[in-house]
Design a protein around this nucleic acid. Structure first.
Length: 746
DNA sequence: GAGGTGGCGACCGAG
DNA sequence: TCGCCACCTC
């Protein structure tokens, strides 16, 4: 489909080929071009296809210019995907289109009209690090008790206000006046720094639209059609922004799924999608309910669970596919057994021919991946962890970016402060304080104040010469920028400043990787014409380079899994307190519970073929063993779609080894003498399935064995009941024969 | 000013 | 249990 399809006069007959593959609701969603439209797209119902086809259809059938179209997503990934697929459909690359994330589009508008809100068009976009430092500085200045109000909490509050579209003088719902004053200070400080944080991008747009109706009207006229992805994740500010822009044409199409709204904690308002028909009267609502991803049992289990939520628009997914396997719900003794179980299920699936890349372990919180990582490492199963620090959040990238930011915008005090003593130049807090005081007195940026101070005798001689050199260096690098390409200048600057040398001398294992990252950063710069364009890219768009691990099991949080799919999905840790998360429930009560339930729904619906849920009776949490109860969500799963397994046999296994004898049955709580505290398994006691005990026997040299902690290995030496084993994925170790079992042929 | 140590708290994390 | 931050010493 490379050629542009011919426009059609009547959509009812003779559909153009790009529409012929859609099912009736999908077709309706693509063809409802006029007026407000809400497309409720359930998990796996072909949302992306509808979005991209709709875009293509608009361009073809309405013959509008791509520049009259606004298409908004949340992530760069989603924007990139849409870009690619639309290009494929209509045959042109969507360069310069208004297709991007809320933040990228808002930044574009803000650069055009920065002066309306008192910024220059080369304003800096701050990262979370800068924001926090700024808040800390202001708190020091105001003498706010950072015990009662940690800087992080204050920043979170400011962000919340911004998410709601509230400027300092418009904060609703009474915040402490001290804190609102701090918010006002913070905004004022950003202005003097010629900087904006992420929240400001949207917030300043709203201010511009309010102060300058002429500017708003121009955008309203420009955007004849608006398309929004993941509408259930929009916050109040984004909603207001969309509503203002849509007031002109009223042609706004929002696609989303209220059942997959899982970002309430960062300001998303599921109410936005629930209220759509009131907000946009006369709206057409279209439901996509045919699922092309999962089996009947998976959809049945997920559907039964999400039905327990009260606040939803309601839709029922169905599939033409077979029922498939029931969702496995497995009770386990403790988190160690759980990790072993996950490993076994992955190996079992591999034996059935499922590729590692088609399997995922999804957890509620990031720290939970650790135990599974250790297990997979032991078993030699390749895996990758999604999450962790992103490229531009790494220390070395932030440092390098700070150098570049000063080059671009000498008034960037935060950047200057960040690298003033990086690498170490002998400039401590005392010097920083002195510079700050001087800068405030002279009412100039830090760098300029520094430069002026070096011409006086106010500084200690050593400090003075250090700072003078630094100022001269920056002046030189900036001059260099006029005649030398910016990637080259960046390299020179990082070398001459001693920054590269700092990592070269660092002996820690990460140092080499950091130098690699710096090289990658400089390589990436070459793709941009100007330093300004590059800085904008890194602040808003820079993505983590995808890991090479093609054939690897994916470990990640449920949040990170939204939008993805796998053949086999493992969902461990379904225990009260963990999932649903106690902290969320404490903070937001029933609202949070419903969101946790949606999260469970998202987890189950990631699976194509098989979903397995695990819960344990005892878990090591922050280094302590704690008892746990099965998640209430387990009890909410419809019985018809699940298969319960409780691994009592695992105890027997341990018992057999400790006693050196076979496992003799009678598992009713008569556990004589073990160090176990008998855990309670209150939910499905009666349905317990016994797992067979592992065979133990005497081993010969050369025998293949399996050890729960160290994995597979070969017996090198037998010494009574002690074995010397050469482990495949660990060093050779001497272990008791009772702790290994004969490796099954794999 | 730089480098070391003990106490405390720990979720999810786009742009 | 682990990592970060505040505090402390050289």
């Amino acid at each position: 489909m490379s050629a542009v399809p011919a426009p059609v006069a009547s959509a009812m007959t003779d559909l153009p080929p790009y529409l012929s593959k859609l099912n009736p609701p999908q077709l309706a969603a693509v063809q409802a071009l006029d007026g407000p439209v809400l497309v409720l797209a359930g998990a796996g119902t072909g949302k992306t296809r509808v979005l991209t086809t709709r875009l293509a259809h608009l361009l073809v059938s309405r013959r509008i210019s791509p520049f009259e179209l606004l298409a908004v997503t949340f992530t760069n990934k989603a924007a990139g995907e849409m870009r690619e697929r639309v290009a494929h459909l209509v045959g042109t690359a969507p360069d310069g289109w208004w297709l991007g994330t809320f933040h990228a589009l808002a930044a574009r508008i803000l650069r055009k009209h920065a002066e309306v809100v008192g910024l220059k068009d080369n304003f800096t976009i701050l990262d979370a690090d800068d924001q926090l430092r700024l808040v800390k500085q202001l708190m020091d200045g105001r003498g706010i008790d950072d015990q009662r109000w940690p800087a992080k909490a204050i920043l979170a509050l400011i962000q919340k206000w911004k998410d709601r579209g509230e400027e300092p003088d418009r904060v609703s719902g009474g915040g402490e006046s001290k804190l609102i004053t701090l918010y006002r200070d913070y905004q004022a400080r950003l202005k003097t720094l010629n900087a904006a944080d992420f929240g400001d991008l949207l917030l300043h747009n709203l201010t511009i639209f309010r102060l300058r109706p002429d500017i708003l009207a121009a955008y309203q006229q420009r955007f004849k059609y608006i398309l929004v992805d993941e509408y259930q994740d929009t916050n109040v500010g984004q909603y207001l922004w969309l509503r203002l822009l849509a007031q002109g044409s009223r042609n706004i199409c929002c696609v989303g799924d209220d059942d997959q709204s899982i970002y309430g904690w960062r300001g998303a308002e599921v109410g936005n999608i629930l209220r759509f028909e009131q907000d946009f009267p006369g709206a057409t609502v279209i439901r996509l309910e045919q699922n092309y991803r999962s089996t009947g049992h998976i959809l049945g289990a997920a559907g039964g669970l999400i039905e327990k939520n009260r606040e939803r628009l309601g839709k029922t997914l169905w599939t033409a596919a077979e029922q498939g396997e029931k969702v496995v719900v497995r009770g386990l003794w403790d988190s160690e057994e759980e990790a072993r179980w996950v490993g076994e299920e992955i190996e079992a699936a591999q034996r059935k021919g499922v590729a590692a890349a088609q399997m995922a372990v999804l957890v509620r919180a990031g720290f939970q991946t650790r135990e599974f990582e250790e297990r997979l490492l032991t078993l030699g199963i390749p895996y990758r962890v999604i999450g962790g620090p992103r490229f531009y959040e790494r220390q070395e990238i932030r440092d390098a970016m700070a150098y570049l930011r000063i080059l671009h915008q000498p008034a960037d005090d935060l950047a200057f402060e960040r690298i003033m003593n990086t690498p170490k130049r002998g400039l401590g807090p005392a010097t920083v304080q002195q510079l700050h005081t001087a800068a405030r007195a002279m009412q100039v940026p830090l760098l300029e104040a520094t430069q002026r101070l070096t011409e006086t005798d106010d500084l200690k001689p050593k400090v003075r010469s250090t700072l003078r050199n630094l100022c001269e260096d920056f002046a030189r690098w900036r001059n260099l920028l006029r005649e030398t390409p910016h990637p080259q200048v960046a390299g020179i600057m990082l070398d001459e400043s001693g920054y590269t040398a700092m990592w070269q001398q660092d002996k820690s294992p990460e140092a080499a990787g950091r130098l690699e990252n710096l090289k990658e950063l400089i390589t990436a710069m070459a793709e941009f014409d100007t330093l300004a364009a590059f800085l904008e890219h890194v602040a808003l768009v820079m993505e983590q380079a995808e890991g090479a691990g093609q054939e690897a099991v994916t470990l990640m949080t449920l949040h990170a899994a939204k939008g993805l799919e796998f053949d086999v999905v493992l969902l461990p840790g379904w225990e009260e307190g963990i999932f649903p998360s106690q902290r969320s429930l404490d903070e937001n009560g029933d609202r949070a519970l419903q969101e946790e339930r949606r999260l469970a729904y998202v987890g189950i619906t990631r699976a194509r073929q098989k979903a397995l849920i695990g819960y344990t009776a005892r878990r090591r949490l922050h280094g302590q063993w704690e008892d746990a109860l099965p998640s209430r969500f387990i009890g909410e799963l419809p019985k018809a779609h699940i298969e319960l397994q409780t691994s009592r046999g695992m105890f027997a296994d341990g018992y057999a080894r400790q006693a050196g004898s076979g496992y003799g049955g009678g598992y009713g709580g008569n556990y004589g003498g073990g160090s176990y505290n008998t855990p309670r398994m209150p939910v499905f006691e009666a349905r317990a399935q016994v797992m067979p005990a592992r065979r133990t026997s005497s081993y010969k040299t050369g025998a293949r064995v399996f050890h729960d902690k160290f994995g597979y290995g070969t017996v090198m030496q037998v010494d009574g009941d002690k074995l010397l084993i050469n482990f495949d994925h660990s060093d050779s170790k001497k272990v008791m024969a009772a702790f290994v079992s004969a490796a099954e042929d794999v």
